[in-house]
């Protein structure tokens, strides 16, 4: 039961991403970038490459 409960969120997430992928090729990369935005809030240090 516990393993099934652990697996179910993975399945749901994959299904949702599959649906997202059908909406366009840039949908998933955009969404991933959006997810990583929260890392900036938690980061203690951010090193920026000024040359880029």
């Amino acid at each position: 039961m516990k393993a099934e409960a652990e697996v179910e969120p993975l399945r749901w997430l994959a299904e949702q991403l599959q649906l997202l992928k059908q909406s366009g090729p840039e949908a998933i990369p955009g969404y991933l970038r959006n997810v990583r935005l929260d890392l900036y809030k938690r980061a203690k240090r951010i090193i920026l490459d000024m040359g880029r």
Binding site: V35, I46, I47, L48
Partner: peptide, 25 residues
């Protein structure tokens, strides 16, 4: 899809965990 799932999960774990994060290009 697999790559995206794990990236999302990794990000969530990093956000939930008690770690010092440093973002590097």
């Amino acid at each position: 899809i697999l790559e995206a799932v794990f990236q999302i999960l990794e990000t969530e774990k990093m956000l939930d965990g008690d770690v010092d994060l440093a973002l590097v290009p």
